[in-house]
Every structure is written in structure tokens, then in C-alpha cells.
Amino acid sequence: MPRNAWRKSSRSGNNGQCVEVRDRGAQVDVRDSKAPDAGMLSFEPAAWGMFIDNIKVSH
């Protein structure tokens, strides 16, 4: 995935209920795909990685 490119999860359907993520190197940004101009949350890569790892373990 190119840096700074927004992407949706491969598990997202076409119902508009998804988030988009982009890797900017020093941080990972997350936004609502239905309202991309409404703001975003930013995480340090290590924190984002721990979040994703915990999701994988719980599912």
C-alpha cells in the first residue's frame, strides 16, 4: 500500500458502514468513510499495531 493512500478493509461490504485507514509513517490515521471530511483519529504505529493484534485475537 502506498503511503498516504486511504484504504478500506477487505472485509468491508458495500453498505457504507466502514472506516478507512492510511499509513503516514509516523502515524496511522482512521476516518469514517461516510464522512471523510468530518475528521480523523491518529495513532502511533505501535499503538495501532497492538489494536489490530487484539482484534485478531478476539475474533
Score class of each variant (00 low, 15 high):
D29F: 14
Q27K: 12
S33E: 04
K56W: 08
L41A: 01
R3Y: 12
E20L: 00
A5V: 13
G13L: 04
M1A: 12
R7H: 09
D29E: 00
R3Q: 14
R11C: 13
G49N: 10
N54E: 08
K56E: 03
D23R: 01
D53Y: 05
R24Y: 12
A46M: 07
Q17H: 14
Q17G: 07
A5R: 00
I55C: 13
E44Y: 04
Q27T: 14
D32Q: 10
Q17M: 07
R24A: 15
A46D: 07
Q27G: 00
N14M: 12
V30I: 12
V28C: 00
A26W: 08
D23L: 08
P2G: 13
V28A: 07
N54C: 10
H59Q: 14
G39P: 00
N14H: 09
S12A: 06
V57E: 12
C18M: 07
N4S: 09
W48V: 13
D37F: 12
Q17N: 13
S12G: 07
E44C: 08
S9T: 06
M1N: 10
S12I: 05
W48L: 07
A46R: 05
M40I: 00
V30L: 12
A47F: 08
P45H: 02
M1V: 13
V19N: 02
R3V: 10
G49K: 09
A35N: 14
R11S: 05
V19W: 02
F43Q: 07
E20Y: 06
D53Q: 04
V57R: 15
A5D: 12
D53N: 12
V57I: 14
S9M: 04
A26L: 11
A46H: 09
M40P: 01
A35P: 08
D32L: 11
S42W: 02
Q27E: 15
Q17R: 14
R7P: 06
R31W: 04
A35T: 05
L41T: 02
R3F: 11
V19T: 10
D53L: 05
L41I: 02
N4D: 15
R3E: 14
D23W: 03
R7G: 11
D32W: 10
K34E: 00
S10W: 04
W6Y: 01
S10F: 11
W6N: 02
G49F: 04
S42C: 02
W6C: 09
S42G: 09
A35C: 10
H59V: 14
A26M: 09
D23N: 11
P2R: 13
G25K: 01
K34M: 10
R7I: 11
C18H: 06
G13D: 01
D32A: 06
